[in-house]
Design a binder for these strands. Sequence first.
DNA 1: ACACGCTTGTGTACGCTGTTCACAATGGCA
DNA 2: TGCCATTGTGAACAGCGTACACAAGCGTGT
Lengths: 209, 209
Amino acid sequence: MSSAPRANYRHGDLRAALLDAGLDMAREGGPDAVVLREATRRAGVSPNAAYRHFADRTELVEAVSDAAQALVAGAIEAEWDAVPSRLSEKEAAHAHLAAVGRGYLGFARDHPGLFRAAFTVPSDLETALDPAKAGPGGRTSFQLLAMALDGLVAVGALPAERRAGAEFSAWSAVHGLAMLVLEGPLRNLDREVARTAGARLIEMVDRGL
Amino acid sequence: MSSAPRANYRHGDLRAALLDAGLDMAREGGPDAVVLREATRRAGVSPNAAYRHFADRTELVEAVSDAAQALVAGAIEAEWDAVPSRLSEKEAAHAHLAAVGRGYLGFARDHPGLFRAAFTVPSDLETALDPAKAGPGGRTSFQLLAMALDGLVAVGALPAERRAGAEFSAWSAVHGLAMLVLEGPLRNLDREVARTAGARLIEMVDRGL
DNA sequence: ACACGCTTGTGTACGCTGTTCACAATGGCA
DNA sequence: TGCCATTGTGAACAGCGTACACAAGCGTGT
């Protein structure tokens, strides 16, 4: 933010500034566009200063990824909360699953660079509960998906014996569409077509799980 | 192949040699590992020689991508051909769809670098019919998927009104799992778990399309 | 047969990247 | 007040993609 040449030798919160710059770059060009030197430049600091806060370029990218994942979780939460409250239990359960899918795909559409930074980078499932990746509501996108699936089981819309591993199937479906459209062979797919493809995909998941 | 310092000033087929080197690098580290200078080094040639055959690094990577897509198509064809011939029409149609999914996921598992090079790179759907991306049987993976879906419609296993755009849903599902496991948050998923997740995913697609 | 000229490979150079090492400023704590 | 761990700086290196000018080889027309 403050691009004025700082008075002090010390920066104040360089780590945050670098992460911020990294997020900006990821927004514009995905994880590969996160370049360490440029981040230090934007923070008004010499290149090597970064190494006091990140061991590596990859460590910076990972921090950016975590932050981006938190943004995704926030987008999903927003869709979740927008589900009308006057639905039957069963309708609500289906609606929540669809909301998770819509939130995921919507974020991918609206913030392609951040989306790719979030999910195309080292950071395994073991740490899917890491609060750093959670949204304002304190839940990660993975946890939100799991909640939706539990809801389906609770109302009898999903047989309990098919619950195990259902996250993987549902997640794969939306993630695949997002990747195909963002950086894959569906890159040039018409925006509106992509949108309806998303809707149809979510139907498939709901029906097929 | 011939690493002996060539006698001639001319190389013979430098383009093929560069592409070959590129494929090797992609095999080991995905599309990002395809580095132009290293390719020329492996071909025993000066860095700039590459520019006589590829305008860009990205053009080299695209050539590698096309070749990798052809390999994927070949893997899918192999699974397709392995479907037992003594099945009922209906069983065969389902089996062919599953074969396409298995071939896709199997290739991703066995050749992660090439898979990513194939599908995570510029090259839009418009050119999905490009023979350069076809397997030995002359069909691209996209065409094979379409054939499987047509087969389902033909035997009445898929309502005709749901046929349109079904490629996107089916493709998204398998592609998503592959990407999550290869370079996403499911990176460290146990190999066997990933395998059963793939099987379950294919069931979901078959049921939900 | 020979010279012309297009194609293909070479050499040098530039700016960019990530990263290392030795050094300097700073501020909190004894 | 003086020490010292922390945080920033400066210079340097190798590797990358790429541009420009030049050289070697081959095909062709006369």
